[in-house]
Simulated scan of single mutants.
Amino acid sequence: MNSTDATACPHCGWPDGGEPFQVLSRHTTATGRTEWTRCGCGSLQVRVVDGAGTRIVTRSRPAAGAGAVSR
């Protein structure tokens, strides 16, 4: 799924800036950082953090049978 202006996960409705989300890895780039995260529903997300703020540039569907993180 490509980036949209949505501010919540389209799969579970949890706010993109809300906890819990699990940071899987962080990578420094020339303009900031790229983070691979997992939403509470199991969806993988790629977040770009730079001078413009934090935005999700792509995300996957939750894995079949993935257990949700309790909120």
Rank of each mutant, 00 (worst) to 15 (best):
C12I: 02
D16N: 13
P15D: 07
L44N: 03
R47Y: 02
G13M: 07
G67W: 04
A52D: 14
I56M: 01
D16W: 09
F21E: 02
T29L: 07
C39T: 01
H11T: 00
M1K: 10
T4I: 11
G40I: 01
V23F: 05
T37W: 02
A6V: 12
A6L: 11
P20R: 04
T7H: 14
G18F: 02
T29A: 07
W36Q: 03
G13H: 06
T58Y: 07
V49Q: 02
T4K: 10
V23A: 12
R26F: 00
P62L: 06
T58M: 09
M1V: 11
D50T: 11
E35N: 12
W36G: 01
G67A: 14
R33P: 03
R47E: 05
A8F: 14
V46P: 02
G18A: 15
R26N: 12
Q45T: 04
R59Q: 13
C9D: 05
Q45K: 09
N2R: 15
D50R: 08
E35P: 00
D16S: 10
S3T: 06
G65K: 03
D50Q: 06
R71G: 11
S43W: 04
P20W: 01
L44C: 07
A8G: 10
T7S: 13
G42Y: 00
C9R: 00
L24M: 15
T31P: 06
G17Q: 12
E35T: 15
P10L: 08
C41N: 03
R59E: 08
T7G: 13
I56Q: 05
L24K: 10
T34L: 13
V69Y: 02
G51D: 14
A8R: 12
V46K: 01
R59V: 01
S43D: 00
D50C: 06
S70N: 10
S25P: 06
S70F: 04
R33K: 15
V48E: 08
H11K: 09
C9E: 02
R55W: 08
P15H: 08
A52E: 12
G17V: 09
A63Y: 10
R71V: 06
R55L: 08
G53K: 01
